[in-house]
Amino acid sequence: MRIGLSTPVVVQTPAAASPWEAGAGICDIARIAETADDLGFDYLTCSEHVAVPVGDAAVRGATYWDPLATLGFLAARTARIRLATSVLVLGYHHPLEIAKRYGTLDRVSGGRLILGVGVGSLQPEFDLLGAPWEERGARADDAIRALRSSLSVAEPSYDGDFYTFGGMVVEPHAEQPRVPIWVGGRSRRSLRRAVGLADGWMPFGLRTMQIADMLATVDIPDGFDIVLPAGPLDPREPSGCLTRLRALRDVGATAVTCSVAADSTDHYCAQLASLRGIVDEL
């Protein structure tokens, strides 16, 4: 079971963010990423929202660092750790826009991109960007198919229900022959979408037994990733961390996205080192 990092600072939701994150900047993020890289964590994440309505910020948070700029910076400050969008909202972008921008990120990072994608759930943001809200699930399915045909080739072509293109050159493109695509969501449909079209599923907002019940309804392909969130872990309580991680492993997690309790950048890095030691006991 691989262990990734829900990168602090880059997303600050009121229910999860620690007070120190409000005053942190890119140097703090880079130091945490470098520490996670040195310690052997598998991936770090960054989410996408362009603009959050004021009325939703109390729950969703207002701080969302742009994933392309943030992960591009961190690519230059790290050597091995993978860079995961968690998630890009497919409806906000043309598939070739994603293929070009994130294919370039894959190239400059030496093939470390994991493309986490989602359907989206914030209609005012769709409306602001002129993105179609209706049929967004069907559009997302078509976009994933288009991305699969486009990410790793110079002359992509695709003919789908919502996206059709050909006779175009996209350079640079992704270095990986097959960029991992993980689908985020909390519904059975998101799981079916992931199993049918992608390489992994990243559920959120679900209890462990709900995840287990949903996974029991599908045939999981070989090599398919089940990427589960661990929630805040405090390595000062090793037994609690081990209990949580083992429970996720028993449900079927192939990767776990962790956050750790801390009160500063220094403390966060120290907590990561302690968590690495705990993970090695699994």
Rank of each mutant, 00 (worst) to 15 (best):
R244D: 00
A30K: 05
L206R: 09
L129F: 07
D127M: 03
P67A: 03
G160S: 06
D37Q: 10
R101S: 12
D213H: 11
R60N: 08
D199G: 04
G223L: 07
F165I: 13
A51I: 10
S150Q: 01
C27L: 15
A76Q: 14
S18T: 10
L206V: 07
R2Q: 15
R193G: 07
A146Y: 04
G120W: 04
S157A: 15
R136L: 04
Q123K: 11
A16T: 12
R107A: 15
A146E: 01
P156V: 08
L96Y: 06
L122Q: 02
V119M: 03
G160V: 13
E281D: 14
M168F: 12
D222E: 15
R246T: 12
C269V: 01
M202K: 09
M209H: 14
T13A: 14
L215Y: 03
S150G: 03
S190Q: 06
G185Q: 07
G196Q: 11
E237P: 08
L245I: 09
V183W: 07
T63W: 08
D66A: 08
G120S: 02
R2S: 10
D56H: 13
G25T: 03
S121N: 08
T208G: 11
G200P: 04
L275V: 03
R207L: 13
L88S: 02
L122V: 09
L74M: 09
L248I: 07
V251H: 03
L122F: 02
E135L: 15
R80H: 12
P221T: 13
V169Y: 12
A138C: 08
W20Y: 01
C269I: 01
T70E: 05
R207K: 14
G110P: 02
S264G: 06
E175W: 03
V195E: 02
A69Y: 01
V89F: 03
F204A: 10
L113R: 05
M168G: 06
P14F: 15
H94G: 11
D42Y: 13
D141W: 05
M168N: 05
G196D: 11
G118N: 05
V179S: 06
S190A: 09
W201I: 03
Y64C: 02
L147C: 04
R276M: 11
L83W: 02
A79Q: 15
A99S: 01
S190P: 00
D141T: 12
G120V: 03
V50D: 01
V52P: 10
R139D: 04
L83P: 05
A51Q: 09
H267Y: 00
V89T: 15
V10E: 01
A216K: 14
V256R: 02
A255E: 08
V9D: 08
R145M: 10
V153C: 07
Y64E: 07
A253T: 07
G91D: 01
R80F: 07
A174R: 07
R192K: 14
G110C: 01
Q210T: 15
G184R: 01
V256A: 04
G40W: 05
V54C: 13
S109E: 05
E97S: 14
I144C: 07
L129E: 02
A84L: 15
S274I: 13
A76R: 15
P177C: 06
G91T: 02
V11D: 01
M1G: 07
E237Q: 13
H49W: 01
G130K: 03
S157Q: 12
E21R: 12
L83S: 11
A212W: 10
D250V: 07
S264D: 00
V169L: 13
L5K: 03
A22R: 15
T7N: 08
S6K: 12
A154Y: 10
A138L: 14
E34F: 05
